[in-house]
């Protein structure tokens, strides 16, 4: 009996064989590349204002914005505004994503559930989400419940659609492997459908979160006594553009940070993917 020779791959030396290729962290400087464009924009902003191209009451200098934010922060007011906005997004996101996960899993997995539920949900999706506002205010009042419901509705649809289509587009060939090997329903879901659907589901969660931030502004612009959206309305009413710009920047930071959290989780959970992005990462290392 002859010995079977192995095909060894050059990128799998004996020491790391059978383990995922370790991601070599990028050098510090390379990570700073993301800040190059913001720095350029900041310089541009500074030079435009100091050259007097725009009047102060329309576009204040970066330092003015920073001072305004610092003043708010010093009194602890800013932290309260940020906290309430983040809390609204978090609760609305959790509620919307949970409902979407339950319904999306149901309609993705079961064709009869899809036949019963999906047309109605698609019709509701066709209603522009902000059109719910009057009804929600009437039903839930002007305080937290209506805001959170609105955010939840915004989060719901992208999560629902991505999860349902993710389950449905699971490779038939892989499902056949499950059938050949006699996998039960539970193992089919756990070992094949969930991992296969995960990339699409995580995309849905990221889009949902982005909509959550969009809708929290809508909710806070309409009527709130606290929150970043309220801060912007306040800045408009009192003619202080620095506050509006400051709140905009804070939204950008908060949105980016919360998205980065999901993106980091996604990278860990879908490290098995063999996509173009992954090949770029390892090529750089």
């Amino acid at each position: 009996m002859s010995v079977i020779t192995l095909e060894r791959r050059a990128d799998l030396p004996p020491g790391v064989q059978g383990r995922a290729t370790p991601r070599v962290p990028l050098p510090r400087l390379a990570r700073l590349r993301a800040f190059a464009l913001p720095a350029v924009l900041l310089l541009l902003w500074q030079s435009l204002t100091s050259a007097g191209v725009f009047p102060d009451y329309l576009l204040p200098a970066p330092a003015v914005v920073a001072n305004e934010l610092l003043a708010l922060a010093a009194g602890g007011v800013l932290a309260e505004h940020i906290a309430i906005t983040v809390w609204r997004v978090a609760v609305g996101f959790a509620a919307g994503a949970l409902a979407a996960t339950l319904l999306g899993a149901l309609t993705g997995y079961s064709s009869s559930a899809r036949a019963y539920l999906d047309p109605t949900l698609q019709a509701l999706k066709a209603v522009p989400s902000l059109a719910w506002v009057p009804l929600f205010i009437l039903w839930f009042g002007i305080f937290e419940a209506s805001k959170i419901t609105l955010i939840g509705v915004g989060v719901f649809f992208p999560v629902y659609l991505n999860l349902m289509s993710g389950i449905q587009s699971t490779d038939r060939k892989l499902v056949e492997v499950a059938r050949v090997n006699g996998l039960g329903r539970f193992d089919l879901i756990r070992r094949i459908l969930i991992p296969a659907t995960l990339p699409s589901y995580l995309t849905g969660l990221r889009s949902g979160l982005a909509l959550g931030w969009m809708f929290v502004i809508a909710a806070e612009l309409m009527g709130a006594s606290q929150g970043l959206g309220f801060l912007m309305i306040d800045g408009q009413m009192t003619g202080r553009p620095a506050i509006i710009i400051g709140a905009l920047l804070l939204f950008a930071v908060a949105g980016k940070l919360s998205d980065a959290l999901i993106a980091a989780a996604a990278r860990r959970l879908t490290a098995w993917q063999d996509g173009y992005g992954a090949s770029q990462e390892s090529g750089r290392a």
């Binding site: 892989l174 991992p195 296969a196």
Partner: peptide, 10 residues
């Protein structure tokens, strides 16, 4: 099968 049909996540 013609393709290995391995689960890429396993």
């Amino acid at each position: 099968f013609q393709e290995p049909r391995l689960m890429p996540w396993l």
